[in-house]
Each structure stands twice: as structure tokens, then as C-alpha cells.
Amino acid sequence: MPKFYLLVLFLFFCCPGAAGSEKVILDGITFKNVNPDPDPSPTGDFKTLVIPIKRAGNLIVIEAQIDTLEGNFVLDTGAPYLVLNETYFRDLPHAAEQESAGINGAAGSSFTTYVRNLNILDLHYSKLRADVTDLSSIENGRGIKILGLLGTRLLADFAVTVDLFRNTLYIQKLDENGNIPEAEKVFHDRFMVSPFKMLNDVILMKGTVNDNSLWFAFDSAAETSLLDYRRSKKLIPDMEVISRSKIMGIGGTSIEVIYTRFDNLVVGDRKYMKNRIMITSLEKMGSAYGYKIDGVLGYDFFVRGIFTINFVKKEFEMYIYNNQ
């Protein structure tokens, strides 16, 4: 892509992100406290924290302790910070109300609160900001009790490696150059590397499909990858459909879901073939992330290897699974 366009693209993405106000309106959704006071830095006496992963469907679930309650949390790089399930946390004090447009008109009763302590094994957070919202769809879809979602801001100081072959999560402290110290490295044969941007605390990665450049959000809680319908039409003619189904949305609406397969997805320096991706409208999802996006890289993408997200260097890496 010519440099001029890159520059325009860069400015396009930067402008809304630069807003330092307490309130930002994007596509009709008001984000209060978009840039609140930063949470205090987490503490923990470790270099590498090894956390067992529990799987629920294609979700990456780990256990953590919040104040006095222990339970399951979804690792969600599509969420900006800590999100708690309303079912169990609706009695926490309201620090601010969230004026989200409401998912599909249903009474969106999200609010912002602060939790005293969050512990992920030896990693401790205190006085942590959290949004409280309805997460019942995850519980009911996957049959597992979910206390909340762990968003990107919790991991901002670290490199996070997910090994879904052995169901292990590594949270690692970084050296002064933002690298995992050599002695702490768990995986070595890097298969792919891609820089990413953090905008509104969401990971945005560039990819190409049939030589068209696209912006993807990397969302570890998306159980499938997604591609915007309007973009897909222009990118890939006659895509093979793997399955079509209808699911029930909130409020009893029927949503058509189409799963397709296509080749030639390039992310970083690697070409991925036989990609399974769901075609849908991402207009509203884009507004949830705060930016217009072309697609979401989810489970179908990241299950292909062990991956590391270095939040300091803003690098995404993938490793070939090594049997040793």
C-alpha cells in the first residue's frame, strides 16, 4: 500500500483515540470514562506465571479470585478492562453508569464500579475499575459459571502466551527493552510475527485477504473469526459455505449465521489457508470496539498455534506447536 494511504489510515485511527476527554461518542454510542485514571499497577513476585486454562467451548477460561469470590473468568482481548457478570455483582457500588446503546434495545444496565482486589494466582491487582454487565449469554451458551471477562488493560505490562495444546497460559514480566528475558522464554521457533496497535484498549492487527488490506480486531473471546459482510462481498467471490444456521438473539430475534471457508489470509509474514470465518455485519461491533473494523480474528485463527501477545512491544507472535 502506498505510504500516503498508510498515513491517512494512521490519522484516521489516531484521531478518535487521541481524545482525552471523559466522554467520547462513536457511532451513536457514548463511552463515558474512556480514559479514566489509570488503574494502579499490578504486583506479583514472579517472572513467569503459569496458569492452567480451562476450556468452555472455544473460550479460554482461567480461575481468579475477586475480593472473596473465586471463579471463572474469560480471557477477552476484545474487552478493554475487567468486566463483571451482573448476576453476581449487581450489588457493587455504582461509580458511573454506562450509557451503552443497549444490546439490541434490551435494557442495558451496565455500570462502572471498583473492586478492591483481583488475584490471578500470584498476580495481584487492587482498586481496579470494572464494568458490570449482563454476561448470561456466555453462561447459557457454554454451561459454565462466568464471573467476568479479563480485558487487555489488565495485561498491559506483560507478555501473555496461550498454549491451547496443553491448556496453559503464561503471564510474563518483560525486561527494560520490552522483551521476555531469554532465560524465561518457553517457546523458541517463531512461526509468525505481526505488529499490532492498541486503540481503545483493543488489539488491531493488519491482514490481507486476496491482496486487500483489512483491519482485524484480535479477540480471544470470539469463538469463531468474523468478517464483515459488506467487505466480504468485494473480497472473495463465490465463497464456499460450510454451514448456515439461525441463532436466537436477545429479544427473540432470529439471526442468520453463515460460516464460510476461504484461502489466502495473510497476517504478519504468514499465509493462512482454509480459514473458517463467519460472515456478519460488524457495524455495531466496530462501535463497541470504538473503531470500524473489517473483521475479528478469533478462535479459528489463534487455535492454529501457540501465540504470544507482547503488550509492551505491541507484537503478536505465533509458534509451531512443539511436541517436546
Partner: peptide, 29 residues
């Protein structure tokens, strides 16, 4: 027709993706 795909009102991926049945039978584990 596919125009209904444009009306999809979900704002978070998990609102769609957790509703899709996995190929796995039952609840593994």
C-alpha cells in the same frame, strides 16, 4: 437473499459465537 446479515444487531462477538453449537458432543470433561 443475504441482506438480513446487514441487520445483525450484536455488538460483541461472544453474543453470537457462544450461541453456536460446537462440534463436540455434550460437555467435554
Amino acid at each position: 437473499p443475504l441482506e438480513n446479515l446487514n441487520k445483525n444487531p450484536q455488538i460483541k462477538p461472544y453474543l453470537i459465537t457462544t450461541k453456536i453449537d460446537n462440534d463436540d458432543e455434550g460437555s467435554p470433561g
